[in-house]
Amino acid sequence: MIGNLPYLVVGIIFLLGLYAVLFEKNLIKIAIGVSLIEASANLLLIVLGYRTGGSIPVFTLAGKVGKMVLPVPQALTLTAIVIGLATSALMLSLIMMLYKHYGTLDVREIRRLRG
């Protein structure tokens, strides 16, 4: 059980992000929650590909070569990180525009001001 602790950490981070998205009223905190969900997905991918005692899949000055961790989940995580960065940038830009337009970041206020 204690050996499977990383899966538990993935679940906890996902639930924290879900809590922030559902219950926070500040848009910046909602953006942080979305980023936490992305981080939990990336961590799940990395954890899935780990072999006990494995080294990184890079042969430069690797020393004695033994087991190596699976390279494909790491490559997909690299893709996912860059896409998460792009969505974060777009999300924060839209939040800045919302603040400029409404003068507040509270989602209840923004909903109330809907014309």
Binding site: G3, N4, L5, P6, Y7, V47, L48, G49, Y50, R51, T52, P57, V58, F59, T60, M68, L70, P71, V72, Q74, A75, L78
Partner: peptide, 27 residues
């Protein structure tokens, strides 16, 4: 955790990527 079992695709990359693509960094 730490035992993904048989992963033929990843093992193919780990064993053949250096010969096929001549790059040290498999990722």
């Amino acid at each position: 955790f730490g035992d993904p079992g048989a992963a033929p695709m990843d093992d193919y990359y780990l064993h053949n990527a250096q010969a096929e693509r001549s790059a040290n960094n498999i990722v």
